[in-house]
């Protein structure tokens, strides 16, 4: 139960402003979800390296030095409050995760991918965006979420976005009615689900479908059959951005598209500050219809 924002840029010259645009949108959605907030930003990256976003309540001071010593490769890192984004050679991801699990159990890998960085914390969304410096980030697309917790706990682990695969993340407004059964299926299929949150199940479901060869659009279409309840999903992948509402579509959703961007908001006011919104095509996504965009 929450507020969602999403922004997918078509105009490259806007990329340095992605964070500030997304931050403004997120701040407007504060009162839809005062418990916690999170966002994912797709920034720079390349195929040879992977970014791991680590979150830890304790300081992660010597992680970079120790990782370099442990793996024998160069590691770079950016620290933002409780989150540390470490970048290392892609072929060392598994080794890095294993090393972290054994030597830094207090750190959680909240997201991983070539380009995605993912931040989430308990607290008012505007304060969370400020703490992590969202306004200063650049990228091609990003999604954000403000959460009013329903059945799962108000914890950072329960905050959105949820990432269950490389460069994949999902935010959700609504309430799934069959997530326990789907979670059991996904666990059998080897998808790691770590919380009791229904939204993480939705993220894991898409990861599973895409692992089996579906495109993002196909995975979302399949979810119409397999995920029951009320939902509006906004999903990011390394190159794509997609939106889906359930067949009843009670939870609010507004989209806007111009030559420069595609934007999503739970309410129109989240979009009202975007450049050129006056002449944008503005619409509410149809029920049970997948809207997807891919970077050229």
């Amino acid at each position: 139960m929450c507020g969602i924002v999403g922004l997918f840029l078509k105009d490259k010259t806007l990329e340095p402003k992605l964070g500030s645009m997304l931050s403004d949108m997120l701040t407007v959605m504060c009162d839809r979800g005062p418990d916690s907030a999170g966002f994912a930003v797709y920034g720079a990256g390349d195929t040879t390296r992977v970014k791991l976003t680590l979150r830890s309540a304790k300081p992660l001071d010597d992680v970079v030095k120790d990782l370099e010593a442990g793996l024998g490769v160069a590691v770079s890192a950016v620290l933002r409050e409780t989150h540390l984004v470490v970048t290392l050679p892609a072929d060392k991801e598994d080794a890095a995760r294993a090393w972290l699990a054994s030597t830094r159990p207090e750190a959680t890998v909240v997201g991983a991918g070539q380009r995605m960085e993912l931040y989430k914390e308990v607290g008012r969304p505007d304060a969370v965006a400020e703490r992590f410096g969202l306004a200063g980030m650049s990228g091609t697309h990003g999604i954000g979420h403000t959460r009013m917790a329903t059945e799962s706990a108000v914890t950072t682990n329960g905050a959105h976005p949820f990432s269950t695969g490389a460069d994949q993340c999902l935010v959700h407004n609504g309430s799934l009615s069959n997530h326990n059964a789907v979670r059991r299926t996904l666990l059998r299929e080897g998808i790691a689900i770590e919380t009791e949150n229904d939204s993480e199940v939705a993220a894991g479901y898409l990861t599973w479908r895409m692992r089996e060869g579906a495109s993002l659009k196909e995975a979302l279409e399949a979810s119409l059959k397999d995920l029951d309840g009320f939902y509006t999903f906004v999903v990011g992948t390394e190159t794509g951005f997609a939106v889906l509402r359930d067949p009843i579509a009670c939870k609010p959703a507004v989209m806007a598209e111009t030559d420069d961007y595609v934007a999503f908001g739970s309410e129109y006011r989240a979009l009202a500050g975007l450049p050129g919104i006056e002449t944008a095509r503005v619409w509410e996504p149809e029920p049970a219809t997948v809207y997807a965009w891919e970077r050229a």
Partner: peptide
Amino acid sequence: CRHPDWTGPDDLE
């Protein structure tokens, strides 16, 4: 069974 103009706690607020 549902209200015509709101669903869920965020809308209820």
